[in-house]
Write a protein that binds this DNA or RNA. Structure first.
Lengths: 192, 192
DNA sequence: GTCTATATCGTGATAGAC
DNA sequence: GTCTATCACGATATAGAC
């Protein structure tokens, strides 16, 4: 499953990233990680102090990847509203959920400052990034001046995260696409 | 912790409701349920076929309670937009998450049609209920006719579910309140 | 660095006494 | 109906050989 060029520590990290996305922190066992990575117990505990240590490493990695993807797409459009539209309609697999956002529902993640940190940082960054674009839209006269940038940014981020919930609940991506279209229509209707 | 008037089966169900809300399905063990309910192994397996059976019963109960609360609040306002506002700003504890929505991130719940059913039904109902109100708002000239009721409803439901994610990620209810305010501002700006 | 052995505890369930 | 005993297995980790 993995190329021979990837060393053991690296395979442990990517395997953990996958499993955290698929099953969350509570639902992911060291044994499952080792099996997917093709590594033994000894290797895992040689490279990492334990499950939590490995999970923090994997989550930092996933957070950085997500941020890079989001940043790329948020730079795409010609106007602020087009950039938000590019973020909302970016290619996704809604049934898989958000690899970072899903961690927020994990009790052990929320109870640990260390495990929660990458999740918190990701959404702080995303909301600030979106708020800046909304502010640009207001300044450019593309969005109504009554819109508070931080509030609007939170709503946009929430639509995506909540869209994942609706899609997984339905067993279909349809509600995700509806939520995104609905949010875009509201933004379009909110011109000055 | 529980009144003596509550019998064992009932205590098992309410304890499971609480634990599913706090820790999800994967994170909840039969032992934890029994301890909280003050019941032994034998009692649990006498009244229910196992963890999954008990969880379905508990989730059906939670879904019905949530629906009743949402329905009450969705009837409150004088106009369609006021009713949506009442739903969005309804008293909540964002850091606890949604007791039904959180189940959508649980791998074992999503993999089982039986366990997923109550979650799916809840959001189908909610989205249809919200869509009806949006349609009323459009018909009454309170909302722009370009708004598709089903899409708008999905966006509203997603803002709430995603707001929970943002709040738990931040360790603070603030982003939830921002998302809700942001959504309301967009709806207010989307008058015809 | 990786392996196997071992330890302790929890999970999810069954059996049968009371 | 409820209890305790028991079970097979997995979770999470340590120890020490190789």
């Amino acid at each position: 499953m993995y190329t021979a060029r990837m060393d053991t520590a690296e395979r442990l990290i990517t395997s953990t990233q996958e499993l955290l996305w698929e099953r969350g922190y509570v639902g992911t066992s060291p044994k499952a990680i080792q099996e997917r990575a093709g590594a033994g117990q000894g290797s895992m505990y040689h490279h990492f102090r334990g499950k939590a240590d490995l999970a923090v490493t994997a989550m930092d990695r996933s957070a950085a990847e997500l941020r890079a993807q989001a940043d790329a797409v948020l730079t795409e459009g010609a106007t602020p509203v087009a950039r938000i539209g590019a973020y909302l309609t970016r290619e996704r697999e809604p049934l898989r959920g958000c690899r970072v956002g899903r961690m927020a529902m994990d009790p052990d993640v929320i109870d640990s400052d260390e495990l929660r940190r990458p999740v918190e940082e990701t959404f702080v960054w995303l909301r600030e990034r979106l708020a800046g674009i909304v502010a640009d839209g207001v300044a450019a006269g593309e969005l109504a001046p009554e819109l508070d940038p931080s509030d609007t940014a939170a709503a946009i981020a929430a639509v995506v995260q909540g869209g994942y919930v609706l899609a997984r609940a339905a067993g279909s991506r349809e509600p995700f696409d509806r939520a995104v279209r609905g949010a875009l229509a509201l933004l379009t209707a909110a011109r000055p």
